[in-house]
Simulated assay, not measured.
Amino acid sequence: MSNPFPLYKNLPIRHDAPAGSCWGVFDKNGVRDVYGTLNFITPEILVAAKQEIQTGESVVLKYPISHEAPIERSQTFDCLHSLPLDQPSEPCPGRQPLKHTIHARAHGMFCADDEIHVNTQASSQWDGLLHYANQSREEYYNGVKYADAVESRTDQSLGIHAISERGGIAGRGILLDFVRYGERHGIKYDVFASYPITLEQISGMIAEENLDVRQGDILIVRTGLSRAIRASDPRIQGLWDRGAHIGVDPTPELIEWLWDRNLAAIASDAVAFECIPASDKSFMRLHEACLAGFGMSIGELFDLEALAAVAEKNNRWSFFLTVCPLNVQGGVATIANTMAIF
């Protein structure tokens, strides 16, 4: 069956849309789309993704709020972890760290309540479509204006609640393990530097893992940063001050590849998924292309160590994956709430 979606080279289809954007591709019956590339996950593709459940190993989010609490691991199930909500210990400048308060003897009884104040751009997270706009046009995906969505709050259509109301995200996930690939090919790199993972290397990982990339897949790239965070590498202090981060190199060819493979979403253990700065010294090109151009959510700072271990044990790099976002009206992002099942 031929692909019903336009190739990247034929975007945009709307004369008033920015170059390379898919604005209008998913609109139906005059209704402006708010789901972006999640439209690639059709009911038929979701049903087919259940074939990824073969060994019954559930990869769930079960880390504690505080890294000081004990971490219990099931002997039967392995985990695709979120980082604890207070990690990295230094949040990005301008963002507040986690605040967790326990209320003892709540309601005059021997019970407890707690309050959690968390910024959704800390720890493992999914960027929603209100996170990053087209900078020159001050517009989000499908032409939603920054002024309306953020400043006056008169248009909340792209809020994170839309994904929740859609039923969350469920489909086939694929893991590209750059740590393993680098070790096999003698590639030396620093997870605390601006190392660009190239499209050629991505293609190499796909070939070596014997993966076929399908419409609606959720692409996850492991860089090894979560391993360093988990190991309490002292270089995590000052992570943000360096302004240099490992990630996928957001070349025009890479961005074209993401769209033409009809991916539903992308994620990584890296700070921003994309390398900062990019190899050509550009900044946040992929965020603008994916979030504002495609309506493609970006997952960041996932802890992928256990997922990689399960994938390597089974020699299988695809799995069933679900995301249950926070249902916050007009919200910008969500803590991870992500689970994989092999």
Rank of each mutant, 00 (worst) to 15 (best):
S2R: 10
S2A: 14
P6M: 01
Y8C: 10
K9A: 10
N10G: 04
L11G: 04
P12C: 07
P12K: 08
I13W: 06
H15R: 07
P18M: 03
A19R: 08
A19Y: 00
G20C: 03
W23P: 08
R32M: 10
Y35Q: 11
G36P: 05
T37L: 11
F40K: 00
E44N: 09
I45W: 04
I45H: 08
A48I: 12
K50H: 15
Q51D: 07
S58L: 06
V60R: 14
V60L: 14
Y63M: 15
Y63P: 12
I65M: 04
E68W: 09
I71K: 15
I71H: 15
T76L: 13
D78I: 06
H81R: 09
H81L: 09
P88T: 11
P97I: 04
R105S: 12
A106G: 02
G108V: 07
E115V: 15
Q121S: 10
S124A: 12
W126K: 07
W126A: 08
Y132E: 11
S136F: 08
E138L: 12
Y141C: 00
N142K: 05
Y146H: 12
A147Q: 07
D148I: 00
E151C: 12
S152V: 01
S152G: 05
L158D: 05
G159N: 04
H161S: 14
A162F: 04
I163A: 07
R172G: 02
G173C: 10
I174N: 02
L176N: 01
G182F: 01
E183Y: 10
K188M: 02
I197R: 00
T198Y: 00
L199E: 04
E208Q: 11
N210I: 11
L219Y: 07
G224K: 00
L225V: 08
R227L: 11
R230L: 15
S232N: 13
P234H: 09
R235M: 10
R235Y: 10
L239C: 02
R242Q: 03
A244Q: 14
H245W: 05
H245A: 03
V248C: 11
P250D: 06
T251S: 13
P252F: 03
L258T: 02
D260N: 07
N262Y: 12
S268D: 09
E274N: 06
I276C: 01
S279Y: 09
K281H: 09
F283I: 13
M284W: 13
L291V: 02
G293F: 01
I298Q: 13
L301S: 06
A306P: 15
L307Q: 05
V310F: 01
K313V: 15
N315T: 10
R316E: 14
F319M: 06
C324R: 09
P325Q: 15
Q329M: 11
T334K: 08
A336S: 13
N337H: 13
M339L: 13
